[in-house]
Simulated scan of single mutants.
Amino acid sequence: MRVAFYGSSLLSAYWNGAATYYRGLLRALAARGYEITFYEPDVYDRQKYRDIEVPDWCRVVVYQGTVAALKRVAAEAVDADVVVKASGVGFEDDLLLAEIMGSANSAALKIFWDVDAPATLAELRVAPDHPLRRALSSLDLVLTYGGGDPVVESYRAIGARDCVPIYNAVDPETHHPVPADPRFAADLAFLGNRLPDRETRVEAFFLDPAGKVGDRRFLLGGAGWDDKPLPQNVSYIGHVPTADHNAFNATPTAVLNISRASMAENGFSPATRVFEAAGAGACLITDAWEGIELFLTPGEEVLVARDGQDVAELMRMLTPAGAKEIGKRALGRVLAEHTYAHRAEEVDRVLRNRARQMEAAE
């Protein structure tokens, strides 16, 4: 199948947390025979901070952040068997949706792929006339970054024909154990960009615990934290390129996952970093959210913290040997059940089933 995928960016992870999700999933789909073209706008300086060059498994079209350029690339949707508009592209999202789906061949599968479903749904619930909400009934399928039954039921309730969560995973060729790197030496590390619905949780789960265990070294990575007051035992290293993610995850005694507020409240929304850390054999501590046991077993393959006090207690108790054992078990679990090859098999099945249903209905 030929796929036209319109997203934020495949080439750059700069202010673009969905990059590794796109890369892992689309690469695995390409391995199954899909011919993919990824369209991304040149906005937010992402092209200045590319993490990868154009891969051999996907054609990439970078277009200027203008309405005229948007319309030109949207017109190319007519040649695809599957047309995908992702959430959060970052330039004229509503217009892009209308132009893409208006250009798509009548026989093509038309999909909205939501990489931040809890936040999107919160916006749609209070906006009955939102362009996306009005368009849902004309789309064949909504795929999401996660969210479980709560997201599926919510999308169906506001007009989606069907909704299927496609969870994050690990690409073993990209995320894997590596030797420790002194740049990332720490007892606990957190990697995440500074966002409005994350900052308060970072304070509660990372900065406050750092103040309580002052004899432990904490490491903060990600964009936007430059002017944030930090405890003395927290080192800030700025944006961490994806090429350094394995070392960032494999070096500290433990790494921390902090969900964005909307995803934590909804549950069933493991971040990409959960699987990247596990893929590198890291000992992962995650904030508590419903559904974690579907991906990693608490206490054995992941440590779960209900609040900052739990994080502090875990850091007092955790030994390097115990951390290594947890990381080893997590790595085994994700390789067995949660690779992008597993996810691509699921996407392929969903798309082919939907295509057969469309043919039968004609």
Rank of each mutant, 00 (worst) to 15 (best):
F205K: 00
P209I: 08
A77H: 05
I36C: 01
V304F: 08
R194W: 02
V83C: 11
D94L: 07
D197M: 11
E301S: 10
A30N: 10
V84Y: 05
Y6I: 00
L121M: 12
V152A: 07
W113M: 11
G192A: 07
L109E: 08
D181Q: 09
R156H: 04
T174A: 14
F248Q: 03
Y155V: 06
D79F: 09
I258G: 06
Y155S: 09
R316Y: 02
A344H: 08
M317I: 05
I52K: 00
S138V: 00
E99H: 13
L207N: 06
V302C: 06
A336Q: 15
R23Y: 07
K71I: 05
R306G: 15
S87T: 14
Q357L: 15
L188Q: 01
F206H: 09
G159M: 12
A261H: 11
E35M: 01
H338A: 07
N193W: 05
V347S: 04
F295I: 07
Y167C: 13
N105G: 14
H175W: 11
T319M: 13
D81Q: 15
Q357Y: 02
R161D: 03
F275V: 01
Q64I: 00
Y340W: 15
A186T: 07
W57H: 13
A31G: 15
A277V: 03
K328E: 13
E173V: 04
R329N: 14
R46T: 00
G88S: 14
W57M: 11
A305E: 08
